[in-house]
Design a protein around this nucleic acid. Structure first.
Length: 459
RNA sequence: GGCCCUAUCGUCUAUCGGCUAGGACAUGCGCUUUUCAAGCGCAGAAGCCGGGUUCGACUCCCGGUAGGGUCACCA
């Protein structure tokens, strides 16, 4: 990975992705992680992954596992890793500090229904907070309405706002790049940041980070993507199961809400890093469009130096094919045809279910009516035409590539559909398939003749 | 409802005051060795509304409208 050298005295860029393990890694989270990752790699900084698991009720280990695995699948690699549940002592220290200095206080509450009768609240000075968002520009809030908000349930149980700010300070985060649903959290976090003061310079902490709030990824109805409302298709795992290429998903996600200002659309991760610029991130939300993802995924498959390999592997898997050389030969020939008909590898399974693959490896079964061209359903004529085609073929050498001009001449004389349709059906047994010339070359002389004979016998 | 954010083709977007508003996906039509797919070509398709600023606004400012986000002892 190309890394920019740091200038002397220039502060190292440090950004983080801070998911909470309360759900699967979803598209929005993945894109947030990606923008952080691209930004950091572009500037030669460090990307920190921090699991915010302070909510013991809702957090689950399997969610954390899912988030980690799918980030890895996407190739979004972190340089440092933290888990908030390992850092309770640190929060406690700062909580004490705030309590001692009177900035926070223990508040008596009503309690009941899982509620404590005592929590730690932040004494809100009620200032006006203005910050300059790297994407949205200047944003101003009056924090008076926030009141004295809760920052911890107890010394051992900090809640989000507090742990988040403490960690960002401790970890020397310079840029907070997150979803715009966090905009309204920012003022209170800045308040906490200020309250923590510069007196305790934990690591390189002290100076406030830059904020960059990226627009949300939207469902087709323009609402925020949610698993409850929009189902499995919002999770990264879903696309992984569908066997999309991770680099294609990355490419698509990167271009959802960002673009380099030129007309390039297909990017490698390396190019994404080179071109990434927070200033060019969109200000408004973007609808996730699977159709375009599909197109992009195929573009990426096409760019693979050995795209045939995964396709062949998948066909074998789906059809339960053996290892013989004859099969291998056919597989190699049909890989490009299959590519034309899929947008992701899992589509190969769908092709197989539709019977669009099996006929390459075995004599097809089909009703004889299928052999009849819609514009001329005469069986005798069809038989005669197939017979003529058979003669032409039989006269050919058994080389891989046939000379098919004679066949075409026949088709032009008799009518293209009249000859080509039955010929193609005889070879594939299907209503829809690649053209007969392509099939002829795949099957070779012997097999092609066998299939023609079968068709002629049926008529 | 309060606060905050946003507003160009159906969708993703270009335009940083000069636009005959460009590209991509999708759609439609056509071409190619019938069908399917792919490829290629062509076409249709947009500046939310109203004020201002300016010689000139899609671009800047204000208002309205609409959409979204957020208002937890969740993150």
């Amino acid at each position: 990975m190309m890394e920019k050298k740091m200038e002397k005295g220039e502060k190292e860029v440090r950004a983080r992705f801070a998911p909470s393990p309360t759900g699967w890694l979803h598209l929005g989270g993945a894109r947030t992680a990606l923008f952080n990752f691209l930004f950091v790699r572009k500037h030669g900084g460090k990307f920190i992954l921090r699991v915010e698991d302070t909510d013991k009720e809702r957090g689950k280990p399997e969610y954390e596992k899912d988030i980690l695995e799918n980030l890895e699948w996407l190739g979004i690699e972190h340089d440092e890793f933290f888990r908030q549940s390992d850092r309770l002592e640190i929060y406690k220290k700062y909580l004490r500090q705030l309590l001692d200095s009177g900035v926070a206080y223990v508040s008596k509450e009503e309690g009941g229904e899982g509620k404590r009768d005592e929590v730690i609240r932040f004494k809100n000075p009620g200032q006006k907070i203005v910050f300059n968002d790297l994407i949205k520009g200047e944003i101003a809030f009056d924090t008076k309405e926030l009141g004295d908000f809760v920052i911890a349930k107890s010394l051992d149980e900090p809640i989000f706002h507090f742990a988040n700010v403490v960690d960002d300070r401790e970890m020397g985060i310079t840029h907070i790049i997150r979803g715009e649903d966090h905009i309204s959290n920012t003022p209170r976090q800045i308040l906490i940041w200020r309250a923590l003061g510069d007196g305790e310079p934990a690591s390189s902490a002290g100076k406030q980070p830059f904020y960059a709030h990226i627009p949300l990824i939207l469902a087709p109805d323009r609402s925020k993507l949610s698993k409850r409302k929009h189902g499995e298709s919002v999770s990264v795992a879903f696309y992984r199961q569908q066997e999309y290429l991770p680099e294609a998903l990355i490419n698509y996600l990167a271009l959802l809400g960002w673009n380099p200002g030129n007309e390039q659309e297909i990017f490698s991760v390396k190019e994404l890093i080179e071109n990434f610029d927070l200033a060019k991130v969109q200000q408004s939300g973007a609808i996730f469009d699977v159709e375009k993802l599909d197109w992009m995924n195929r573009e990426h498959i096409k760019k693979m130096p050995n795209y045939q390999l995964p396709i062949i592997k998948k066909i074998k898997e789906v059809l339960g094919l053996g290892e013989d050389t004859e099969t291998e030969k056919i597989l190699e020939k049909i890989a490009p045809l299959v590519l034309e008909r899929i947008s992701k590898f899992s589509d190969i399974k769908i092709m197989a279910e539709r019977g669009e693959l099996a006929y390459f490896f075995q004599m097809p079964e089909y009703p004889k009516e299928l052999l009849l061209w819609k514009k001329d359903k005469d069986e005798g004529k069809t038989r005669a035409r197939l017979g003529r085609a058979r003669e032409i073929l039989a006269a050919q050498g058994s080389t891989l590539r046939f000379n098919l001009t004679e066949l075409m001449t026949l088709a032009e004389k008799e009518g293209k559909g009249e000859v080509l349709w039955p010929l193609r059906v005889a070879l594939s047994g299907l209503e829809k398939s690649p053209d007969p010339f392509t099939l002829l070359e795949i099957f070779g002389k012997e097999e092609s003749l066998a299939r023609l004979d079968k068709a002629i016998k049926m008529l």
